[in-house]
Design a protein around this nucleic acid. Structure first.
Lengths: 146, 146
DNA sequence: GTATCTGCAAATGTTTTGCACTCCA
DNA sequence: TGGAGTGCAAAACATTTGCAGATAC
């Protein structure tokens, strides 16, 4: 696997364009660039980090477009918005429920390999209708623990 | 128990002043008002809500003081800062770990009576040093479910 | 061709900061 | 009295919005 790649090979642009069209969305260069950047990305970037990364390759890109694209992708269930970081929203292209860890020293957010599948709760708890829940961990990451 | 009270009787001002002094902090009217307002409060207010509530009784109060006081109380472990609401920070005067529920309709945050004590995790998970973790629930509250 | 999308710039809302003045201990 | 604390106004950010022009299809 090459440097920069994450889980396996990146999907080709046509595949990402197809995905957008399936949602009834137009396959614009901006959206394709954002989708491609997020593909397999486990760094949980903020909108600003996505913008900063893509701007050099797509100089016309604006923050408004980044936020707008993230919002439509979230509505389609393609990305989830994380609240773990009190400073800013972060985005995760993995829509499946999984756990996150925020390092209090370096500020990075990691996927945490803890199996909480045992934690199945009744959908209705004392009159509260629970649709989703998240488990967020805080502490020191392996690099900062040393 | 009277209306407006929460868990038992409110602590008197001298008791709250003592608490502040134990932390090496001065017992100012602003800090005492904020502490008294938070005492037993389970509404998980934002800084702005605290300000709006207290301003009429303490007209000189400023947002800067509210934020400053919440920050020193958080450092002393007297309140916790919640990240459950993506729109703003909320504060909880109960420093013990417990679960929260955000209603997607009315936006209120509740304490959720779910016992997760069974969920004891090793402090060290694959090299991550876990200090605390939070479980946040999202859905419809009893009032909005109807 | 046309409805969707984008970029810009301005607005919004939250939180922080610098600093002169105040007041608690 | 002296340093900690406060209020004000401005700044700093993160995010949203309105709209005129651009572009995917």
């Amino acid at each position: 696997m090459e440097r920069g790649d994450h889980k396996g090979k990146k999907k080709h642009i046509p595949v990402l364009a197809e995905k957008l069209k399936r949602f009834g969305l137009r396959a614009t260069p901006q959206r394709l660039a954002i989708l491609e950047f997020l593909e397999g990305n486990t760094s949980h970037p903020s909108a600003e980090e996505i913008f900063r990364e893509l701007k050099p390759h797509l100089p016309s890109l604006s923050m408004a477009t980044v936020y707008g694209t993230l919002e439509v992708l979230r509505k389609e269930g393609e990305v989830q918005e994380l609240t773990i970081d009190p400073e800013r929203k972060r985005f995760d292209p993995n829509p499946k429920p999984h756990n996150h860890f925020l390092c209090r020293k370096c500020g990075r957010v990691y996927d945490l390999p803890v199996d909480l599948s045992a934690l199945t709760l009744p959908a209705d708890i004392e009159g509260f209708w629970v649709e989703i829940f998240t488990v967020d961990f805080y502490g020191l990451c392996p690099a900062c623990k040393k």
